[in-house]
Design a protein around this nucleic acid. Sequence first.
DNA 1: CGTCGCTTTGATCATGATCAAGGGATGTGG
DNA 2: CCACATCCCTTGATCATGATCAAAGCGACG
Lengths: 256, 256
Amino acid sequence: MTVRALDPKTSDAAGPLTRKLARVVSLSPEELELLAEIQTPTRSVSRGREIIGEGRKCGEMFVLLEGVAIRYRVLHDGRRQILNITLPGDLIGFPACFFETALYSIAALTDTQIATIPMPQLLSLFARHRRVAGILLWLFSCEAAMYAEHLTDLGRRSAVERVAHFLLELLVRLQAVGLAEERSYRMPLTQELIGDTLGLSVPHVNRTLRQLRDDGLVAIEGHRVVIKDFEGLAALADFERSYLSRMRISEALAQG
Amino acid sequence: MTVRALDPKTSDAAGPLTRKLARVVSLSPEELELLAEIQTPTRSVSRGREIIGEGRKCGEMFVLLEGVAIRYRVLHDGRRQILNITLPGDLIGFPACFFETALYSIAALTDTQIATIPMPQLLSLFARHRRVAGILLWLFSCEAAMYAEHLTDLGRRSAVERVAHFLLELLVRLQAVGLAEERSYRMPLTQELIGDTLGLSVPHVNRTLRQLRDDGLVAIEGHRVVIKDFEGLAALADFERSYLSRMRISEALAQG
DNA sequence: CGTCGCTTTGATCATGATCAAGGGATGTGG
DNA sequence: CCACATCCCTTGATCATGATCAAAGCGACG
């Protein structure tokens, strides 16, 4: 990672969260410093380890700085539902940290690097910096919006539509933190994990991906996903008027 | 509605939100007054009308004081997914009010009474009253937790499990605001709406309800739902260790 | 009394689960 | 350097859950 002579807003050193925010709202030097401050110190969690364990106390929030994690719920008979995929720049610990004990587990899929934000510090930040508070609330909102979209996937979309939507969402989200190219990215999940995310069985995920490939909408070589026909996929998945494109922070908050 | 000589915390006059909160955290007189203050003035929205329209600006939050509303998303071909059911005491407008325009519509299912909280007032409340801010964040968390549970429903539960889970969730939520008896309540949704909530077709909702009836788990006469075997339903739906039972506000917040 | 909205039931169909087996890469110990 | 194991992907055959289509029943209400 080279240190370039860039505006601090967009420099790599600022970290994925700050870069993501800088795309939707302009941050003052003081705010940049605050964001940097709450994102230290960091610690690493290695592949397969739990970041938050269901039923355990969780007195802090985290920012995922590097790697990929999943939040999931396991039913008594072993069926698993992945609630969301956590990418660099995402907050972890909402809503867990507001409950006595965490409701769901969060596990690192790859080796990860996370920053810890103690609750008292978070709450005092809310009190002292109204605009930063607004921005954090906006982040919570984005998470809620993604849940809502995910719900629509599972409730009312067919397997092809779900997978298409999933591939596009991942493209856009990875791009937001500079981890995807114009039309391609490295798929961070196995087909089993995709199945647990979309409520599908592994063979059916596989067949659905093949169908999308046969239709020339995507190309998949190894873990590399190439979106060959963005418009086609978007039409299929009803992605057009989608949430991510409208995830603009409201002026009321932007101006504090 | 009679005015009884009760502790203001639990009096009907306090409104459903305050009553709901009083169950999980003790509120000071000042906090009670603050809560009362943000819940005025009120306005009514009649059955079938939109409270928030998808794509429209939404510069405020609402508290639903009376009636039932749904948040939903409609796909281009008309399929509808209900994202959540809003009951008295619930906040409306999260996450809509943090975006330029609302992402989803919210419509009144019955005649409703709502209180309006302008965003500036909300943000200044966050700044001035840390504990109330914490409590509001906790409310957002509850909403996120319900989304997560709903996701598990749609992704990994069968039709019977979904319906069973839905009936129990409604019982518990209605009880939290004093709108259900020990084991029964008035179902506020038609079978079509239940279908759009659970991702099922109307005939299948009907057959599933019949199956639960035949198995002696519930009784349904008209709009009255009677849970005849709570334990049986809970086991079927994996409701046991569920979110609502652990929706206790964390001590860090309760103490401010 | 007739209409409208909702529920109920039946028959058929299809989406996607399940079961089963093989294939291919990557890694590890002998 | 090879045997073997593991993890993941792929494919096929069968099965079942739940959708769709169709129609009738049934209150409530004007």
